[in-house]
């Protein structure tokens, strides 16, 4: 892990900051994957289809903007302007999110169920962690990064 996240590079990244457009794109999966998770929980508690529909749209837009943010993050990492850990976490969120998008296209209860909830949980956690690191949070190294 250390090689993925050298302190020197993290602090350099934090000093420079994330490009505003990259940040805006990244903010979409960071917010919409958890939004889908909350909608899934509400669906499982209510069986109201609209909550599953909301989750499906949230996942779709998280994938659209998250895909662009992922490309941006990978290019930055390759050009040694940023950490690789954040794009890797975002890739995890994106891949699980893609499976979840198809899962949410099944009908009625099968659109969520236990599997959909777990997929939403994984992509939410991974996306939030990716955002935390990209925005300079680090892994307990926030003080150092500042």
């Amino acid at each position: 892990m250390a090689s993925l996240f050298p302190a020197s590079r993290a602090s350099a990244m934090a000093r420079r900051g994330v490009h505003p457009l990259h940040g805006l794109l990244l903010a979409v999966p960071v917010t919409l994957f958890p939004a889908a998770l909350l909608a899934d929980i509400t669906y499982l508690n209510s069986a109201e289809m609209q909550w599953s529909n909301i989750a499906a749209w949230a996942i779709t837009f998280a994938l659209l903007c998250g895909g662009l943010a992922l490309l941006w993050g990978l290019v930055d990492a390759l050009r040694r302007r940023g950490t690789l850990l954040s794009p890797l976490l975002l890739a995890l969120a994106w891949g699980v999110g893609l499976v979840n998008a198809f899962h949410h296209s099944r009908d009625a209860w099968s659109s969520v169920g236990t599997a959909g909830l777990l997929l939403s949980l994984i992509s939410s956690g991974a996306a939030v962690a990716a955002g935390w690191i990209a925005f300079g949070g680090g892994l307990g190294r926030r003080e150092m990064a500042r």
């Binding site: 890797l88 976490l89 890739a91 995890l92 994106w94 891949g95 699980v96 893609l98 499976v99 198809f102």
Partner: peptide
């Protein structure tokens, strides 16, 4: 982790 999207596509 990086292979996960590929794995997902293969699954599809």
């Amino acid at each position: 982790r990086a292979r996960l999207p590929l794995a997902a596509l293969a699954l599809l």
